[in-house]
């Protein structure tokens, strides 16, 4: 308004406020990195889940029987 007084010994100058700053560190504005990481994580997660299922099923899905034996030991074995 022309009425504001500045200190006599201080020259008037502009103070830039809210000037444009570089983009924040880490932030990925396109979201591409995030999408890539998410897809990779989904993929790895899915693989891990599949592996877990396979492992659990293979171990708990019925017991593995011993081979069927030939009927009775031969006469070479002395029955006691």
């Amino acid at each position: 308004m022309g009425k504001a007084r500045t200190p006599e010994n201080a020259p008037t100058h502009y103070i830039p406020i809210g000037s444009q700053e570089p983009p924040p560190v880490f932030v990925d504005p396109t979201g591409g990195r995030r999408r890539w990481i998410r897809r990779t994580a989904y993929g790895i997660g899915l693989l891990l889940v599949l592996a877990l299922i396979v492992v659990w099923l293979s171990q708990l899905g019925g017991s593995a029987p011993p081979p069927g034996r030939t009927p009775g030991p031969s006469s070479a074995a002395a029955a006691r």
Binding site: V55, S58, P73, S74, A76
Partner: peptide
């Protein structure tokens, strides 16, 4: 062998696969 039985018959493919997982 002493009993006249077969020593370690071959395992089934299924057992080998399950063993691999284990």
């Amino acid at each position: 062998a002493a009993l006249g039985d077969e020593v370690n018959p071959a395992a089934t493919d299924e057992a080998v696969w399950r063993g691999r997982a284990l």
